[in-house]
Computed example of a mutant assay.
Amino acid sequence: MTDVLVAPTQAGVARVTLNRPERHNAWTVGMQAAYFTALEELAADPDVRVIVVTGAGDTFCPGADTEALSRYSETGTTNPAMALIEQPEWYPALVPKPMIAAISGMCAGVGLAQALLCDLRIAAPDTRFTTAFAKRALPPMHGMVPLLTRVAGDAAAAELLLTARTFSGDEALRLGVVTSVSENPLAQATELAERIAATCAPTSLMTMKQALLAPWLPRIEEAVTRVDATLDAVLGSAEFREGLDSLLERRPPAFPGLRIDPTH
């Protein structure tokens, strides 16, 4: 089974499905490589005007796969295969065609980042969103701070990051995290994509997307680079181990207090 499925293009619309239903589409390095490769191929296909991204089954993406996180905790570093991925971590934002995320079930951590890298987001009202990182003792990975600030503003982004609480699709709409809600997000996303493909000029869409993202791309790149430089220290920490153990054991985490070196 491939981690990503690409449906045949119809009416100018391509559908990309995150496809690890046995793990609720949890994110892995292999999935990232397959997803970015699929996007690169669709970006080069003149028959594709709009891309819809969804998840197999009833979940978009609950975040990083816990089996992968366990290996990171054991080794104290990320998967070396990540270095083989040619595209940058924010690659979906560079795709010169509109991308619409159809979201249901759980959308957390890196899954939320992937949704935010799309241009439009349609969610089921009962979708469960969370930034998740603080409860796992992780920094705001995948450019989450600028991505969330871009759609929800500074105050809402701060609250969602610092609490790591779960919020619904309906609340996500009120906050600006998604652009609409629907009982059938995939059907609505597909209908919207077909309408855009049929009525909007591809070059105009490309330039509009580039203009919308231009103020944010440097911030996203800087955020990713800064966080990635700290990851080995984080993944080898007792805090991260506790954050992961609490997730696996389905209990509240018991983190130690913060100790600050006064010499730094």
Rank of each mutant, 00 (worst) to 15 (best):
R241I: 05
R241K: 14
L244W: 06
A201M: 11
D170K: 12
A233W: 11
A187E: 08
L205R: 02
P253N: 09
E191C: 02
V234Y: 01
E171N: 03
P185I: 13
L173I: 13
F255C: 07
A214N: 00
W216Q: 03
V177G: 04
P252K: 06
A172T: 08
N184P: 02
D245K: 13
V178I: 06
S168A: 03
A223F: 03
F240W: 04
A187L: 07
S204H: 12
P252R: 07
A223L: 03
R251Y: 02
A211D: 01
E183N: 13
A158M: 07
G243Q: 09
P253I: 07
P215T: 00
E242W: 09
P218T: 00
P256R: 06
Q210C: 01
G257K: 14
I196F: 00
R174C: 02
T163N: 09
L192W: 15
Q188D: 15
P185M: 13
L162Y: 13
A254C: 12
R250H: 15
L186E: 11
A187F: 00
D228Y: 10
L217C: 02
V227C: 12
K209Y: 00
G257M: 12
R219E: 14
E242F: 11
P253M: 12
T163V: 05
I260K: 09
R195S: 14
G169L: 09
E191I: 10
E239M: 08
D228C: 05
S204E: 15
M206P: 00
A233F: 05
T179Q: 14
E171L: 07
R165E: 11
L212S: 02
L217F: 06
R174K: 13
L205I: 03
T225M: 04
L186S: 08
L258Q: 12
E194A: 14
E221V: 14
A229N: 05
A238D: 15
Q188R: 11
L231Y: 09
A229M: 12
D232T: 11
P252E: 10
E171D: 11
A158I: 03
